[in-house]
């Protein structure tokens, strides 16, 4: 009899234990990584390095936030890297031709959003699989970026800006600091996190995104406009890519048509690490930020520990595999 009760009780305990891991798995892994690397590398645990790490995380983070929305709606956006490059090139090109930097930056953000809308329309109105639709836009946008620049980088952008306020605005995006210490990109990342958290959790739009990814047929029948919801998530993803592009060119003071190549994979990895279901409907933005930080900590830590770049990729792959497997047990 005692045996039997144990058999009944055991699965319940186990279940709550795994669901606990599933819920906070990414954060537990993050804390674990930070502690381990802090112990072995004194350089890692300095405040300066943490701020540096946060700035490095920004590029992937901003893109991964947009990607989270797309994946939650049962889509995927492979075009983020190309969108980043094309918007960045547009911005640089406009500045070189004398358009005020602030205006050029706004135009770049609008361009990125519209490029996302195109992907969204291909998915909804064009009825293409998201993977194929964004594979097409990914290829096309990269091509346009190369055409616009003739394949050459646009350099010394800041110098070519005549008036001070515009030059300041352009430099601020990537190189600026708050109180002389906290990088502006890191502040943008935290601000974006708050906005995305609010939109996904507290607004009717957030509910529609989850519902669309969970069961589009059912959502449609209760009056959710699936087409609109999907187009908006791709637009968000495009906007975030363009924003990341602006930070990048400000930091590098140069816009290359090959910018952001392969960024889509890091973003998708971060979303997956954060426990978001690749088939949509389930996931959290807090998971994504944990995933982004895990990747950033790994990159930063392995560099400080002078791990060979060849091994770095393998280690990253193992971490992602373990995280995704532990998530599946849920």
């Amino acid at each position: 009899m005692a045996n039997k009760t144990a058999a009944v009780a055991a699965p319940t305990n186990k279940k709550s234990w795994t669901s606990y891991i599933g819920e906070y798995g990414a954060f537990i892994a993050l804390v674990f990584l930070v502690v381990v690397i802090s112990v072995v590398s004194p350089e890692f645990r300095t405040a300066g390095n943490f701020l540096n790490l946060l700035r490095q995380a920004t590029f992937n983070g901003l893109i991964a936030f947009g990607m989270t929305c797309v994946i939650l709606s049962d889509g995927i956006d492979l075009s983020v890297g190309s969108t980043l490059a094309l918007s960045a090139v547009i911005c640089a090109k406009l500045i070189m031709q004398g358009v005020p930097a602030i205006l050029a930056m706004i135009i770049a953000l609008i361009s990125g959003t519209l490029l996302g809308v195109v992907s969204g329309l291909l998915v909804t109105k064009g009825r293409l699989q998201p993977f194929i639709a964004t594979l097409i836009t990914m290829t096309a946008y990269r091509g346009f970026a190369l055409i616009l620049t003739d394949g050459k980088p646009i350099s010394n952008i800041a110098k070519s800006i005549g008036d001070r306020p515009n030059q300041f605005a352009f430099k601020l995006m990537g190189k600026g600091n708050l109180f002389g210490k906290i990088p502006i990109p890191a502040i943008l990342l935290i601000f974006a996190l708050v906005v995305f958290f609010f939109v996904l959790n507290k607004t009717t739009f957030g509910r529609k995104v989850y519902a669309t990814g969970s069961n589009a047929k059912c959502a449609k029948l209760v009056g959710v406009n699936i087409t609109k919801t999907k187009v908006i998530v791709y637009a968000i993803s495009g906007f975030m890519s363009a924003l990341t592009g602006l930070i990048l060119i400000s930091r590098l003071d140069s816009a290359q048509p090959t910018l952001g190549d392969g960024y889509e994979l890091d973003a998708i990895a971060a979303v997956a690490l954060g426990g978001t279901s690749m088939s949509g409907g389930r996931g959290k933005i807090t998971g994504t930020i944990a995933g982004v930080l895990i990747i950033a900590v790994l990159n930063n830590g392995m560099n400080l520990l002078e791990v060979s770049t060849y091994y770095q990729d393998v280690i990253k792959a193992v971490v992602i595999l373990v995280a995704v497997l532990s998530d599946r047990k849920r």
């Binding site: 989850y210 519902a211 969970s214 069961n215 047929k217 059912c218 959502a219 029948l221 409907g281 389930r282």
Partner: peptide, 9 residues
Amino acid sequence: KTEGLLLEK
């Protein structure tokens, strides 16, 4: 199951 509910919600 397919039209009436978001089953996993």
